[in-house]
């Protein structure tokens, strides 16, 4: 039977790329979440849902 991708190749890919993917994504997310200048945007966002105005802006 013809194998399109060998099991070993797939395992190698999962074990290398998977690790890089995990670490890089974690770093990017942490940087985004803790970027100091983002503080105001996040504060505004969390307060935005508490406005009593119940109609669309347009």
């Amino acid at each position: 039977m013809m194998t399109i991708v060998a099991h070993d190749t797939l395992v190698w890919f999962a074990k290398t790329f998977g690790l890089i993917y995990l670490v890089v994504l974690s770093v990017v997310v942490l940087c985004y979440a803790f970027w100091p200048s983002k503080q105001k945007e996040f504060d505004d966002a969390s307060a935005s849902i508490l406005k009593k105005e119940d109609r669309p802006w347009q």
Binding site: V29, F34, F42, S46, I49, L50
Partner: peptide
């Protein structure tokens, strides 16, 4: 948050 009338404790934590 809306029902409690308070913003979420940590918006950053919600993103992480």
């Amino acid at each position: 948050p809306v029902r409690a009338g308070r913003p979420i404790f940590s918006y950053r934590m919600s993103i992480i």
